[in-house]
Write a protein that binds this DNA or RNA. Structure first.
Length: 177
DNA sequence: TAAGTGCGTCGTT
DNA sequence: AACGACGCACTTA
């Protein structure tokens, strides 16, 4: 609740660290909202590469970040996030955005197969492409791509590493085959 | 059953 | 033109 201010080299993009029992996540905000959430990077400590320049953090971003921290904390501890910050998915293609928005509709503790998601967005045959879009999800955890399983309740893949997918599912009480 | 192969499909690079 | 966080039919053990 005392976010360390960090600014990327990109203009108008604010990058902040979120310490959690699972490591340091990194959140990025555009003018529209949370546009990226990264899993703790490999080792542990923040990387040297990041430019840390103190600066004034806009009030609205500060508020968004508070929502992000709370939502992430609840998600990682197996509780339902009550609120999400505004999420900016505009960087994705039309197809990707349709997939990501569909993911937001999968309730906590629920799952859908890649095929069902494909059908849900009106592209029943683009099953594999849905997998690709899930892999490109810029806001994992809060945009719950981990709730998408392969057919027959099989685990499927996860760009953030299958250990993460298994952990997130288990914390929601979801079982796979 | 479980595990492996082949092929259709389609958005992305 | 090639490559997947897939799905399904089919073959083997």
């Amino acid at each position: 609740v005392k976010p360390k201010k960090t600014k990327s080299s990109e203009q108008g993009i604010f990058e902040l660290i979120i310490p959690t029992p699972d490591g340091e996540f990194t959140a990025r905000y555009s003018e529209a909202g949370l546009c990226s959430l990264r899993f703790p990077s490999g080792s542990k400590a923040s990387k040297h590469a990041r430019r840390t320049r103190e600066m004034e953090l806009p009030e609205h971003v500060r508020q968004w970040h508070i929502l992000t921290e709370a939502a992430l904390a609840r998600s990682l501890s197996g509780r339902v996030p009550e609120w999400l910050p505004p999420v900016d998915l505009s960087a994705g293609s039309d197809f990707q955005q349709r997939v990501w928005r569909a993911l937001l509709e999968i309730g906590w503790g629920r799952t859908k197969s890649y095929g069902v998601v494909a059908a849900a967005i009106g592209r029943p045959k683009a099953v594999r492409a849905v997998g690709g879009a899930c892999g490109a999800n810029p806001v994992p955890v809060l945009v719950p791509c981990h709730r998408v399983l392969a057919a027959k309740q099989k685990l499927g893949g996860f760009s953030g590493g299958l250990d993460w997918k298994r952990a997130l599912l288990e914390r929601e009480g979801i079982r796979t085959r």
